[in-house]
């Protein structure tokens, strides 16, 4: 069997994404803090990536879902668009997440296209630029 392709390289890949708050915030977000990179803000174009360090990888474990994610550290830029959308946004890694292994095999679809596994989390600013916050999960295409 061929090894799964490395995700996080130049070639686009599909994945599920959700949103998370970070930095100063109201309600349950108040305790979120600046994330693993220290500079994460809900109102900025930031994201969380499951393989920012060994300690991060130990928590998120994307390998358990068969995803071979490249190490990408704080400040790395990804380009993200909704799998059925036309707007592309740019986001910078500012935190560790999501916990991919809790949702192995989960799928989100739009108009006949589907994406599997949670490999990226976006701040509310980034998520709402390509989707609606009231939907907790959406399929996206990611390129580096």
């Amino acid at each position: 069997m061929a090894a799964p392709p490395d995700v996080g390289a130049m070639a686009p890949t599909t994945a599920e994404t959700s949103w998370f708050c970070c930095g100063a915030g109201w309600g349950p977000c108040g305790s979120a803090g600046g994330g693993a990179c220290g500079n994460c803000q809900s109102g900025s174009r930031h994201c969380a990536w499951p393989n920012t360090s060994d300690a991060c990888f130990d928590i998120t474990r994307p390998d358990r879902c068969g995803d071979n994610l490249l190490r990408r550290t704080c400040g790395h830029t990804f380009y993200v668009e909704h799998l059925c959308g036309t707007t592309e946004i740019a986001v910078q890694i500012a935190d560790c997440g999501p916990q991919t292994d809790l949702w192995c095999g989960e799928q989100s679809c739009c108009s006949g296209n589907c994406a599997t596994n949670r490999l990226l989390d976006l701040t509310p600013s980034a998520y709402s630029a390509i989707g609606n916050l009231s939907s907790g999960i959406m399929p996206v295409r990611i390129r580096s």
């Binding site: 809900s42 900025s44 174009r45 830029t77 592309e88 630029a129």
Partner: peptide, 23 residues
Amino acid sequence: AAGQRRPLDVEAGAHDPNFIEGR
């Protein structure tokens, strides 16, 4: 729309002027 990608509205990591968080 393929091939005619719109330019980025906000740079990566930058504060988003068209988004507000608060009470």
